[in-house]
Amino acid sequence: MIQYIYSLIPSIFEGLKITIKIFIITVALSIPLGFFVALCRLSTIKIISKVTQFYIWIMRGTPLLLQLVLIFFGLPYVGLVFNRSTAAFIAFILNYGAYFGEIFRSGIQSIDKGQYEAGEVLGLSKTHIFIRIILPQVIKRVIPPVANEVITLIKDTSLVYVVGIGELLRAGKIASNRDASLMPLVLIGIIYLILTAILTRGFNLLEKKYEYYQ
């Protein structure tokens, strides 16, 4: 039994590496994208705001799985060919960028307009008000919804199997089929649980760090 589990480690480890890679790259790029999306969505220039709204609607209104398939299998028909992992990154970053965008937008909008006005009356510039007064408060408020999204993301990475990328879950499935055993899948489940537990703990610490004010 123990020996069997040992024998699974190398393939599971390979899968885990890919899962973590997709996770980290998506987080690192979709959060800045989301910030940009939020600013565009809140832009006073109508066309920018409308186009952004449309993008968000598409990304949130269709399954990520479908987006992944269309980007990898569909775009080549219009001459855009990506390799598997590029297609996966594009789909994940665009999709999560939209979700983060909405989180940041509602975070920015939740700040009392009195905060802007207090800054204006003191003679601070709009940019200074946004960076020094609004943004720090937004960050505190968006930590919980961002944490939710990030935890969903770690599980969503399993979707890349549809374009044939061998991540964690796929490694488990292959072993499970080969050995006619559910043990690999149980192991995979435990690994996901550990990953989400680490993330949850990390975000809890981050929340604590911002508890010094209300």
């Binding site: 009392d112 009195g114 905060q115 006005e117 207090a118 009356v121 007064i133 720090p136 408060q137």
Partner: peptide, 13 residues
């Protein structure tokens, strides 16, 4: 010119 708001609008952070 200065203004003290009714709700003060201090920066909470």
């Amino acid at each position: 010119m200065g203004l003290v708001f009714q709700s003060f609008n201090l920066f909470p952070h």
